[in-house]
Amino acid sequence: MSKPREEKYQAILDAATEAFAEYGYFSCQVSKIAKLAGVADGTIYLYFKNKEDILVSLFTDRMGQFTEEIRKEIAQCQTTKERLLRIARTHITYMQKNRSLAMVTQIEIRQSDPQIREAISGPLREYFQLIELVLAEGVAKGEMVLSDFKVGRQMFFGTLDAVMSDWVLSKKPRSLNGVENIIFDLMNGAFKIKD
């Protein structure tokens, strides 16, 4: 994609994030996205087939950026403890900085039809695999005890997911700074993580 075309594509995704968060996916009209993006309604269809395609593209793009950011962060870590703390911190910080995106991922995508859920499953699976890899490496290095990586990932991600859902649905969102330490303490007890 040329730079101006890529910029417009990203502007539409940014607008869609805000529009879906404000109006809800089902109530949001493509014209609202176009208005927020500062483009004509028809321009949207030069980039996306329909509203479903916008939602899937939004999730795929943003989740890809999110997972890549986590990869970079954990590459700097030496121990499993550091990696899990960094994943939790990056997850929470990223969503706090992108509240509209958090609303879309925690509320709107979960209400979508099975076809949309299937279309967005790839980027989510990639994130799950990254967490499972960190857990498997931790066991292989003797830094933790865990007999089932999938269950471990479900516990870890499920805890992060529940914290973010509560934060998004709260009438008065609070700061989540430091929450990763509480999450880690829970995982530490469950996984017997060594320093």
Results as ranks from 00 to 15, higher is better:
176 L>K: 03
122 G>M: 15
49 K>C: 09
140 A>D: 13
150 K>H: 10
151 V>E: 12
174 R>Q: 07
166 D>K: 13
126 E>V: 13
6 E>Q: 12
140 A>G: 10
151 V>R: 13
20 F>W: 06
72 K>G: 06
186 L>A: 08
4 P>R: 11
76 Q>S: 11
141 K>R: 14
72 K>W: 07
70 I>A: 09
16 A>I: 08
114 P>K: 11
31 S>C: 14
121 S>P: 03
177 N>M: 06
117 R>D: 10
89 R>F: 12
123 P>Y: 08
75 A>P: 06
162 A>R: 08
143 E>T: 06
89 R>W: 13
187 M>A: 11
11 A>W: 05
61 D>K: 15
131 I>R: 02
193 I>T: 01
161 D>M: 07
169 L>T: 11
58 L>F: 07
43 T>E: 10
35 K>H: 14
143 E>H: 09
58 L>R: 04
25 Y>L: 14
49 K>M: 11
193 I>V: 10
13 L>E: 01
128 F>N: 10
115 Q>N: 15
174 R>C: 00
16 A>H: 04
163 V>M: 05
20 F>A: 06
88 A>S: 12
178 G>Q: 05
149 F>Q: 04
127 Y>I: 07
49 K>Y: 12
95 M>F: 15
64 G>V: 13
17 T>V: 11
173 P>A: 00
4 P>W: 10
137 E>T: 04
180 E>I: 02
133 L>V: 00
15 A>R: 01
166 D>S: 15
149 F>D: 03
163 V>Q: 06
119 A>H: 03
149 F>N: 04
108 E>M: 08
35 K>P: 11
59 F>P: 00
80 T>A: 12
62 R>M: 11
156 F>R: 01
34 A>E: 04
184 F>P: 02
19 A>T: 10
175 S>F: 09
50 N>T: 00
40 A>M: 00
90 T>F: 05
160 L>W: 07
135 L>R: 01
90 T>E: 03
22 E>T: 13
150 K>M: 08
5 R>V: 12
43 T>L: 15
86 R>T: 14
43 T>G: 14
67 T>G: 07
4 P>F: 07
26 F>S: 14
154 Q>G: 01
29 Q>P: 01
129 Q>H: 11
83 R>H: 01
21 A>L: 07
176 L>Q: 09
119 A>G: 05
168 V>T: 06
136 A>K: 10
190 A>F: 15
100 S>E: 12
17 T>A: 12
139 V>Q: 02
147 S>H: 15
104 V>P: 02
108 E>D: 09
125 R>I: 06
5 R>C: 02
102 A>F: 05
56 V>R: 03
67 T>Y: 10
19 A>N: 02
7 E>L: 09
12 I>E: 04
